[in-house]
Design a protein around this nucleic acid. Sequence first.
DNA 1: GAACCGTGGCC
DNA 2: TGGCCAAGGTT
Length: 378
Amino acid sequence: MPAPKSAQKDASAKNAPQLRSQLLAWYDANRRDLPWRHTQDPYAIWVSEIMLQQTRVAAVIERYTAFMERFPNVEALAAAPEQEVLALWSGLGYYRRARMLHKAAQLLAENYVGKLPGTAIELRKLPGIGTYTSAAIASIAYGEPVAVVDGNVERVICRLAGWEADGSVGATALRRRIDERAAQLLAPRRAGDFNQAMMELGATICSPRSPQCGVCPLLEFCKTRGEHKTTPRTKMQSRTVACALVLQNDRRTKIPRKALLEQRSASQSVMPGLWELPLLASADVPEKELSLTVRHAIMQVNYDVRVRTIGAKQVRSLTVKGGERRWVRLEDAAQMPLTGLARKILMRLHLLPPQPRGKALSLTVAHTTLSSRRKEDR
DNA sequence: GAACCGTGGCC
DNA sequence: TGGCCAAGGTT
């Protein structure tokens, strides 16, 4: 399938071999040391790719390690209760990813002895694995010569070629061109590295707002040197809400032992099944009961959240939203699928350990199982 | 094709 | 402070 005539003039198309080698040389010298780059295990690559969807590398790093320690393979993931999978996802957002990952693992455990499909086409059939993710797993884990196009690659290619999403070309047509160009540039014998190099270039050098063209390995092939229009987004709204912090203290020490949590109903479109602090009907909170205010963005809304400390006896005055309400020991709460907001509030009030499933816990795990496992891997 | 699905960090 | 944005997929 030939590229459109207008697209064939730019240097990135003509000099594909040289572009490839310079990109790969840059990648070999500058690639970040990320946990999922220490493995070729398709399952591990898969988990990392799902976590990385619309999520920054920095946010994924911590979660990835804990997740892989708890669910080291397809069978372990498939055998786990969904709530436990969600608990390790808590705070990452887009919880449907975790559910589909879990579901897909169960499908694989039942039908494929826990083995991942060996091609992008087959991977694509699993829930939660779309065009991008199937190509990412196949190229990185199997070396299959398929190009990935994520937001980074899209931006890099548009800047290289001088293409714009300006309405002169339909969004679908432009996307098809980008896909074709990505496939054309791909280094077939180092597909996984090439794909990661393109994404990493977009993430670190060819960034959306202030691209570092001065140190870009592809500068000489680039038509625009960093220009790129982005489509404006819908404006954020602001809202003030209040939620209830209801604690049970230990009788002797007076130290908080339990908190009242509420489970969002399964039918909610946002964060179904996750646990949170009960939402209050009124955002008005008496000064004396205001224990904390936090800002929290969910989707298109910036919430100004007031946390109201309420005695256990006033619980009945709380608005019931239909979800299950439960007294939860604070140390157990850390293992539950809390919403990001609930986790943030409990952390900020030092009611949860600094890292929910953090250092202390993973060290314990590492002593018993992980250290030995890691050695075997080598 | 467009709306929807979360969140934290950066500038 | 607040807008911006991230290794997308599903409906």
